[in-house]
């Protein structure tokens, strides 16, 4: 049973974290991160060739988490596979026991470590969500019955701070209509914008897990602003970290404040510690 689903649908506040599979076959580093994060989180996202760069598959890494008794959120991007491969991986995921699914579009390949790759984008994330819902109902995207369907708890990404809001709102409604039950947001800096998103989503019956990014150094801020698509650190926040005597410490304090605010607004928090995994306890304010 998906604990993520049970808690969210039962109105309990959830904490999720995130790990990246290795660029290779040695899972030790990932497990080390998992060991730090898992005691504080209800489920962990396992990214899919994140940043359009080569990693071990989310499918195998999610299964590895499951074997250690940790609940994964299996991420699938539309960038690297066509509709046959995506559906086949969804069937594989369910057969391996993966119950939480997060569908995302995927970064442009030119931003990654294989810039000459063809971006597939045979489907977009909304279409993939609706296919997953169809599989939950026992059929593939061609409406043909499956010998054994799936039962995914389907999530998608949400971008409360990426204006224009009317466009984002329409996207959110589309995704919910496609079968998305929970959203994980891009990192939140403006709590009013998170509030606005939650108010839009709640009446439609879906849940919002708000993202917190730990901006552990000025370098990370520069990276986010220049390299991460769809995200900008506001000046006031960037200045606070840049001016701090101990930027990592200031970043942890800031993240803890954000988590505290999010507890009052959203259905959960998704922590992206960017390497400061050991600080997760402090970030969550001792709770979680």
């Amino acid at each position: 049973m998906s604990r993520l689903r049970d808690m969210l649908e039962g109105g309990e506040f959830v904490v999720t974290g995130e790990v990246a599979p290795p660029r290779g076959t040695d899972l030790a580093g990932m497990h080390a991160a998992v060991d730090l994060l898992a005691p504080h989180c209800h489920a962990l996202n396992v990214t899919d060739n994140q940043g359009a760069s080569l990693h071990l598959s989310s499918l195998a890494a999610s299964k590895a988490l499951l074997e250690r008794g940790i609940e994964p959120i299996f991420q699938q991007t539309c960038r690297d596979r066509n509709r046959l491969a995506l559906q086949s991986d969804l069937l594989a995921a369910w057969s391996l026991g993966l119950e939480n699914l997060l569908v995302v579009t995927g970064d442009d390949p030119r931003a990654g470590d294989h810039p000459h790759a063809k971006g597939v984008f045979d489907l977009d994330s909304t279409q993939l969500a609706s296919i997953a819902r169809g599989m939950n109902e026992g059929h593939d995207m061609m409406d043909r019955d499956l010998k054994g369907g799936t039962g995914f708890y389907v999530g998608a990404a949400m971008f409360p701070e990426a204006e224009p809001w009317d466009v984002q709102l329409a996207r959110i409604e589309q995704k919910i209509e496609a079968g998305v039950r929970f959203f994980q947001t891009q990192a939140i800096f403006d709590m009013d914008k998170l509030q606005r998103a939650v108010e839009a989503v709640r009446p439609l019956g879906a849940k919002v897990i708000a993202g917190v990014l730990v901006l552990k150094s000025p370098r990370v801020i520069d990276f986010v602003n220049s390299k991460l698509a769809g995200l900008m650190v506001p000046d006031a926040i960037a200045d606070r970290i840049r001016r701090a005597h101990d930027p990592a410490d200031a970043a942890i304090a800031l993240a803890a404040e954000q988590v505290a605010s999010i507890r009052d607004i959203a259905d959960g928090v998704h922590v992206m510690p960017l390497g400061l995994d050991a600080a997760i306890g402090r970030i969550l304010g001792g709770a979680g």
Binding site: R79, V104, T105, D107, D108, R110, G119, F121, D124, S125, T126, Q127, A157, F159, A162, E163, P164, V167, R171, Q174, Q186, A229, G230, L231, M232
Partner: peptide, 20 residues
Amino acid sequence: CPKGLLNGPCGGMWNGMCEV
């Protein structure tokens, strides 16, 4: 759309501008 998405925008859109 550089990604050829039928439904969008993708998560890279910022202030109405394209990620790519």
